[in-house]
């Protein structure tokens, strides 16, 4: 059985960054179907897009978004993220498997035996190191919110807490803060109730969709489980470029 140099759980922005210069002995395992899902599926367009980036790769990534008109004056057209990351993965030949959930990573004779639940059943991989960029330990959650994509024919989105513009007129996000114990059914119900009785200045805005996962921030971005087993939570970074940057640089904490 092939022994990978590194297996990365999560086709997150950090995970893709970590695989960017790693070569063919690195493999990303992603349970969902969207690269960058920690931002894209959480409907989290990020913030502080003009912040400093350490790596040329991340500056190129941000410039790509600007050139394609998806990043305008610090406002992000979030739906551009998945197509761009998909294209980057293909063009850079990054090893990746979608639809695989890592169920265990057990040390064994100097390597890690990583098991996944996959459409093919249970699959096993061996790796010298394991980087988890996705898993959320409930007790470590510092902040949790549930987001909705909202749209309007007008562009008068209130400059209020919880509302964020996209890059284009009539494109916005509503971020509903939650206590860490809140479940998806409760979050959706609260969103519905809020929106049904929303303030008059939001009357022209409709909910086009609700997030496909919670947006969460953890107490700590990075946690070392063992010398060859590291957790770096990509969703903790301020925006996809910052997460990608940290991944390329191998930065463990922000």
């Amino acid at each position: 059985m092939k022994v990978y140099e590194k297996i990365i759980f999560g086709a997150t922005c950090y995970g893709i960054g970590a695989a960017w210069n790693a070569g063919p002995d690195t493999l990303i395992l992603e349970p969902g179907i969207h690269p960058g899902g920690e931002f894209a599926d959480a409907f989290d367009p990020g913030s502080a897009w003009n912040g400093p980036l350490q790596t040329g790769e991340a500056r190129w990534f941000r410039a790509c978004l600007e050139k394609r008109n998806a990043l305008r004056n610090g406002a992000f057209h979030l739906p551009a993220l998945i197509p761009l990351l998909s294209s980057m993965i293909l063009e850079n030949g990054i090893g990746i498997r979608l639809g695989q959930t890592v169920t265990s990573a057990i040390p064994e004779n100097g390597v890690l035996r990583i098991r996944t639940a996959a459409p093919e059943g249970e699959l096993e991989y061996l790796a010298f190191s394991y980087l988890d960029t996705l898993s959320v330990e409930h007790a470590a959650i510092r902040k949790k919110s549930f987001h909705a994509a909202i749209s309007s024919d007008t562009d008068a989105l209130p400059q209020a807490e919880g509302f964020q513009r996209g890059a284009f007129p009539g494109e916005g996000y509503f971020k509903m803060p939650l206590e860490t114990s809140c479940t998806y059914p409760d979050a959706r119900l609260r969103l519905e109730n809020f929106w049904r009785t929303r303030p008059a200045e939001l009357a022209a805005w409709t909910v086009t969709g609700s997030a496909m996962r919670f947006a969460v921030k953890l107490e700590k971005t990075a946690r070392r489980i063992a010398p060859n087993h590291l957790c770096v939570f990509s969703g903790n970074y301020e925006n996809p470029a910052a997460a990608f940057d940290a991944g390329v640089a191998g930065k463990e904490a922000s």
């Binding site: 008109n69 197509p83 284009f168």
Partner: peptide, 18 residues
């Protein structure tokens, strides 16, 4: 997904979400 990447995203013809 990569096919949805545009040379230039425009406000008139855009994706809301996938």
């Amino acid at each position: 997904s990569a096919l949805l990447l545009k040379e230039r995203f425009t406000p008139e013809d855009r994706i809301d979400f996938l």
